[in-house]
Design a protein around this nucleic acid. Structure first.
Lengths: 203, 203
DNA sequence: GTCTATAAGAGGATAGAC
DNA sequence: GTCTATCCTCTTATAGAC
C-alpha cells in the first residue's frame, strides 16, 4: 500500500465523516436551515477546512444526495439478485427501507424549489446516473408487477414510480411519530398499507 | 358608514393584497426562500410599509396560513351542508380541492421544520381553532365512512386524516405536471385513485 | 490541510422625514 | 401609513499564517 494510497484513504474517511454529518443535518433541518458552520462544528473541523474538501454548501448537499442514491442503488441491486420474490415484493422492500430511513431521521431532504441546489444536482453525473439506473430498474419491476396482476394496470408506470419515490419525503410518518401512539414498525406498516391498498375498505 | 369604517376597509383591502402576494410566494418558493423584499415588490409598496401591517416575516406567513385555513373551513362547512352525499364523497371533495389548489400553484407550504415559524403558527389562536375544527369535522366523516364500509376500518382515523392532509403538499402532482403528459384534471384523478385505491390491482 | 480572522453580501428589521 | 436610507445580524466564502 503506497503512501499516496494511505493519504487518499485518510481523505476518504474524513470526507465520509463530513457527508455523514451533512446527511444528518439535511434530514434534521433541511438544506436552507442547515449552515456550513453547523456542519463544521458537527464534524469537528474548521469551516475553512471544510471548504478544502467541498467548494460550496451546494456541493456538500450534493455529496450527501449522491451517497443516498448510491445506497439506494446498492439496495436495488441486492433486491434484483433475489430470484425468489415477486416484482411487487421488491418494490415493497425498497419502499419499506425508505420509510425506515425516514423514520430514523436519516433521510436527507432537499427542497425541489431551491434553484441553486437543483442546478448543481442536475449537473452531477453520478447523481443523475444513479437516479436513472434506479428508475429504470424500478420501472421494469412496476411493469412486471402490473403483468403479474399485483399493480393496478390502469395506472401509468410513472405515476407508480413517483408515488413510491414520494414515500421518502412523506410527512405522514413524522406526524404519526409525533403523536406517539405507534412504534416505528407500526408506522411503516400503516403507511405501506395506505400506499398499496389505499384508504378504501377492501372490496 | 363611518369614516373609521372606511379607513378600516381600505386597510383590509391592502392587507388582503399583501396576504395574496405572500400566499403566491409561499406556494412558489416556500418560506425560507421567500424574502420580505420580494413581498413588498410584489405588493407594490415599500418594505417599511409592509412592516406597519405585519410585524415580522413569520407574521406574514402566519396570516397566509390562517387565510388558507379559513378557506378550508368554509369549504368544509359547505360540504357539511350537503345532506345528499356520503361522508366519503365529502372527504374526496375536500381532497380534490386541495389537489386543485396545489396544481394551480396557490397552495402555500410552510416547512414543519422551521422552528420560528412553527412557534408563531402554534401561538396563533385563529389558526389553531380552524385546524381543530376542520380536523374534528373530517374526523367525524372518516368514522362515518368507516361505518359505511367506504374506508378501511383497520386504519386508525388519524392515519386517514394525515394521509388526506398530506395531499396538500404531495410532490407527485408537481412531478406529473413537469412531465407534461397529463392535464391537471387527469393528475387530480390519478392522485385521487392512488390515494383511495392504492397502487394494488383491484381485487 | 488545518487553523484564525475577515471579507462580502444577503436579508430581516427600523429610523426618521413627510 | 408611506417612503428612502440605513442598521445589524447571520451566513457563505476566502485570505493568509502555520
Amino acid at each position: 500500500m503506497s503512501r499516496l494510497s494511505f493519504k487518499e484513504q485518510v481523505l476518504r474517511v474524513r470526507e465520509d465523516a463530513i457527508i455523514a454529518s451533512v446527511n444528518r443535518l439535511l434530514a434534521d433541518k433541511g438544506f436552507d436551515l442547515m449552515t456550513v458552520d453547523e456542519v463544521a462544528a458537527d464534524v469537528g473541523i474548521a469551516k475553512a477546512s471544510l471548504y478544502k474538501h467541498f467548494p460550496s454548501k451546494e456541493a456538500l448537499a450534493t455529496a450527501a444526495m449522491v451517497r443516498l442514491m448510491e445506497r439506494t442503488q446498492a439496495l436495488v441491486d441486492q433486491q434484483a439478485a433475489r430470484v425468489d420474490v415477486s416484482a411487487r415484493e421488491r418494490l415493497t422492500a425498497i419502499t419499506r427501507w425508505a420509510l425506515e430511513v425516514l423514520l430514523s431521521g436519516e433521510m436527507p431532504t432537499v427542497p425541489s424549489q431551491n434553484s441553486s441546489l437543483r442546478a448543481e444536482l442536475m449537473a452531477n453525473k453520478a447523481y443523475l446516473d444513479a437516479i436513472m439506473r434506479v428508475s429504470d430498474v424500478l420501472g421494469a419491476w412496476i411493469v412486471q408487477a402490473q403483468a403479474d396482476g399485483d399493480i393496478n394496470p390502469a395506472l401509468p408506470p410513472e405515476v407508480v414510480l413517483y408515488t413510491i419515490y414520494a414515500r421518502a419525503c412523506d410527512p405522514v410518518p413524522a406526524f404519526l411519530k409525533a403523536g406517539g401512539n405507534y412504534s416505528d414498525a407500526q408506522i411503516v406498516d400503516l403507511v405501506l398499507t395506505t400506499c398499496w391498498q389505499g384508504l378504501s375498505a377492501t372490496r
